[in-house]
Nucleic acid binder design. Sequence first.
RNA 1: GGAGAAAUACCCAAGUCUGGUUGAAGGGAUCGGUCUUGAAAACCGACAGGUCGGGUAACCGGCGCGGGGGUUCAAAUCCCUCUUUCUCCGCCA
Length: 430
Amino acid sequence: MLDIKFVRENPEKVKENIKKKFQNNKLEFVDKVITLDKEYREIKVKADTLRNERNTISDNIGSLMREGKKEEGLALKEKVIKINDELSTLETEEENYENQIREIMYLIPNMVADDVPVGEDDSKNVEIEKIGDPIIPEYEIPYHADIMASFNGIDKESAAKVSGNGFYYLMGDIARLHSAVLSYARDFMIDKGFTYCIPPYMIRSDAVNGVMSFEEKEAMMYKIEGEDLYLIGTSEHSMIAKFKNQMLKECELPITMTSYSPCFRKEVGAHGIEERGVYRVHQFEKQEMIVICKPEDSESWYERMLNYTVELFRSLDIPVRKLVCCTGDLADLKYRSCDVEAWSPRQKTYFEVGSCSNLTDAQARRLGIRYKDENGNRVFAHTLNNTVLTPPRMLIAFLENNYNEDGSVNIPEVLRPYMGGKEKIEKKVC
RNA sequence: GGAGAAAUACCCAAGUCUGGUUGAAGGGAUCGGUCUUGAAAACCGACAGGUCGGGUAACCGGCGCGGGGGUUCAAAUCCCUCUUUCUCCGCCA
């Protein structure tokens, strides 16, 4: 969300930005919101003046009553009733304007960084760096669910009976691997100085509405029957809501947290649920990182966060690449964003495993996350978020990249302490 | 889950029954000063935040006593509702 004052003063810049994002249907919003804002302020002046009059006369009535001059007081009442009459119309208008302006401001996208490549959709995203050799082995890499099955590590059939499509039972070494990568990721981030956090997995509707649009809510969020509670789709929801309407102290910044949570998603819409594997499911787990910092620090945090993910994947022997999101693929709140993609030797291509974003002050302005600087000024903080990793999706990359011809899977050094010292997991035969 | 009490500014806290002179007493903290070699203490003084709007500015106005709504000429004060905290009971990993 932009500052209305910025829009007022820089309508052309805002329009340019909208064009860069290929959202020409929103171009008219700029002039519209500026007009609405102007009319709103005119009405506010009128209403404020009337309220002022009312307050003054009411005070007078009070004084007269105390002095016992009832008649005079009663006469004044008539006047105020008239004012209130006039006011009620104005106040309805005021509210209408406020709502309209807010709705439009939500739709006008955040300014994107100058160096974000211009492009219409994700096909125009730009690879900036490959880290690790994307090896294509001589032998064939099986589908991830089949690898899991070869260790008796997954049962989707039972899950489908018990919970429906989009769920899984993970078992044995695979389940342990799932916990192991999460624990490893948690410790990895703690070592980087992040504070570990386990947030609520259910949040109230006002928290939900604060962090996503109505459409997103409908497509993603599970509601608890009979309660004003929703299952979170990512810990980011709880984590951001935690700071809503907070005035932070400058000395608290940067706030760097790594949160764990299960994530629940309806996945209504575009892709739907995948039948066989664990790539897209209703329930998964995720380790996330968020940073709330001063505006001048957000760009360097962005780089750092992105590189943490890369470093983490590399420590698990998984080749990755950084793919910069082009303007058209950038969500409206984002200033810049970069996907981290893992190499899939089976598909011989990279696939998304995480996404790092700098939202500058757009999210903070929407949610009221501020801090007091050394001069006592209240400043909107910058917010950033990035995936650390999400098993089971991460397991796909892990299993494929550490798969041996004999069907065993290597456990990279860093993960062994979490796997009881095992160097590899082997096929179960029965 | 049941019953009761409460939420006031950076913190504590008065005001609520009985609506108006209360944007809010008092204390603490903070800042400045006197005193002191320095500090503490004591004393004196300052400071009421925030947000929206008007104005070149000085300044002026609206909102604002947990959130939302209502009654009233007028609400911290009365009514409804939600949230949170505390106490007791019940249940329970």
